[in-house]
Amino acid sequence: MISIHFVAVALLISLGIYAVVFRRNLIKIVMGISVIGSGVNLFLVSLGYREGGIAPIFTNAPQTAMVLPVPQALTLTSIVIGLAVTALMLSFTIMLYGHWKSLDTRKRRLLE
């Protein structure tokens, strides 16, 4: 059985890779990387999801299934790192715009 999350994961990651490889605008490349990151995060969270599970907090917990806590911790860390990478790349983009006056990678190629 293939659940809908994994289809969404595959779609998000392929969309992101498409943007990184084929788009020529720097901001769209950054967006592409961010979309790949969302796809991977969705993958991690759906790995730990249990049908009808509750949040993994043991204090006064009822005796039902819990979702796995480890993938959530991983996802949280990965979101924070993703934020740092996106911020770094956008700041590079701002400074590159200052040099090129354009965001199109085809307009100016400084290194060859």
């Binding site: 990184v20 590079f92 400084l110």
Partner: peptide, 18 residues
Amino acid sequence: RSGKSLEAAFKYTVVSAV
């Protein structure tokens, strides 16, 4: 922070982030 070094850094970040 020259145009060239920013371009190199951007490329490097794209490759390593992916």
